[in-house]
Design a protein around this nucleic acid. Sequence first.
DNA 1: CAACAATCTTACCCCAAAGTCAAACAAGCT
DNA 2: AGCTTGTTTGACTTTGGGGTAAGATTGTTG
Lengths: 209, 209
Amino acid sequence: MAQRGRKPSAWKNVAPSRDELFALKRTALLREAARAFSARGYHDTSLDDVAKTLGVTKPALYYYVTNKQEILFECHMLAQDLGNVAYDYAVEHGKTGREKIVLVCRRYIELITSEIGSCAVLSEFAALEPKNRAVIAKRRDDFQKKFSELIIEGVKDGSIREADPRMTVFFFMGAINWMTQWFRPDGDMSGEGIASVFSDLLEHALKPQ
Amino acid sequence: MAQRGRKPSAWKNVAPSRDELFALKRTALLREAARAFSARGYHDTSLDDVAKTLGVTKPALYYYVTNKQEILFECHMLAQDLGNVAYDYAVEHGKTGREKIVLVCRRYIELITSEIGSCAVLSEFAALEPKNRAVIAKRRDDFQKKFSELIIEGVKDGSIREADPRMTVFFFMGAINWMTQWFRPDGDMSGEGIASVFSDLLEHALKPQ
DNA sequence: CAACAATCTTACCCCAAAGTCAAACAAGCT
DNA sequence: AGCTTGTTTGACTTTGGGGTAAGATTGTTG
C-alpha cells in the first residue's frame, strides 16, 4: 500500500540488490564482531560465537571476509574514519585554534559513543598483525599530527597558552580513547554529557591564564 | 676483600637464602612476563617465549606459578599498588584538594614510567578471567572513589572549580592509563617530563576561573 | 525445467600453546 | 659417600579455535 502510486523503480528501495545485500550482511558481521571484541577482547572471541549470534555458521562468515584479522583491521579503519569526520567538522566550524580543538574533542566523543561497538576495538591495537598494525599506526600518527598543528595555531592566535603540542595531544586523546574501557551506552551518562564535561575540561586546560 | 673485616654473618647479604632465591626468580619471571605482555599482548605471548628469554624451559616456570592467568593477575595487582603509593604520598604532601590531586597525578606517572614493564599490562584487563577481573575492578573502583573524594574536597575548599567528580577522574585517569600505549622508556620524553606536562594540564583544567 | 551462480552447511584438518608428569640433576646435610 | 629436598628438563597430552573442502541449498536466468 505504501508502495502504490510510486515509480515503477520503487522496488529498488525495498529489495536490495545482491551487491547491496552482500554489503549489508558484511557490515552486520563487522558490527557484531566489533561488539564482541570490545566486550570480551579479540582473542577471547571465537568466530563460532560471532556466527551463532548472527544466526549462521562460521564458514558463512568466511564468505564475506578472508580471515579474522581482516575483521579487526576493518574495525580499526572504521573507528579512525570517525576521527577524521570530527576533525573536518571542527575545522569548518571553529574560528580560533582552541575552538577547533575543543570542537574536535566534543564531536569525536559524540561519534564514538554513538558507534561504540566499532570503536571499543581501538584498545585491541596489539592484536593487529604487524603489517596491519603499521597501517593503523601511520593513520593514527597523521591524525595526531593534525591535532598538534591545531594547537600550534591556537598558541599563535593567542587562544591557547604555551604548551607542548605533542604531549597535549597525547593527554586528551588518551582521555578519550580510554573511554572505550568504561563507557556503556546504557550507563547513567550520555555521550553528549561526557562530550560536554570533557571538552570543558580540555578548554580550561588550554585557555591562557 | 670487601668482605674482609665484616661480621661473620656478612654472607647473608651476598648469598640469598633459598626462600630469597625463590622470591627473586619469581619476581624476575613476573617482570619479564609483564614486559612481554605489554609488547605483544597477553594472548600473543607464549610462556615458551618467556621461558626462553629467561634462559629456562617452560615447565620451570610452572614451579613458580600455577598458571598463566596468575601471572597476569599478579601484574595487575603490582601495577595497582603503585596507584595507592602515589595516593598516600599526595595526601601526605598536599594541602588543598587541588594540590593533592595534582600530586597524585605527578607521582603516579613517575612511578608507572619507571616501572613500565609491569604497568603496560593495565590494558590487558579484558584478558583477566572473570573471578580475577572482579577483584581488579573492585580495587580500581575503590581507587577512583578516593580520587573523587579529593575532588569534592577541592571544590569545598575552593581550590577546584565546580565539576563532575566522577567524570573528571575518568578524564585524567584515562589520559594517564593510555600512556601505557605510547610511552617508551627510551623515547625523547622522560617520565618526569611527562609528569610535569600532564599535572600542569590537569591543574589548569581544575583551577577556578 | 535445466543450468549456472551465489550462499551457506556439515564435517573435517591442523596447529600453537597451555598444562602435566616422571625422570634427571643439583645442593646441602649427615 | 649416600640420602633428601628443591629445581629443572624432555617428552608428552590436550584443546580451543582458526581455517578449508566438498557438497547441499537457494535463487536467478535463459
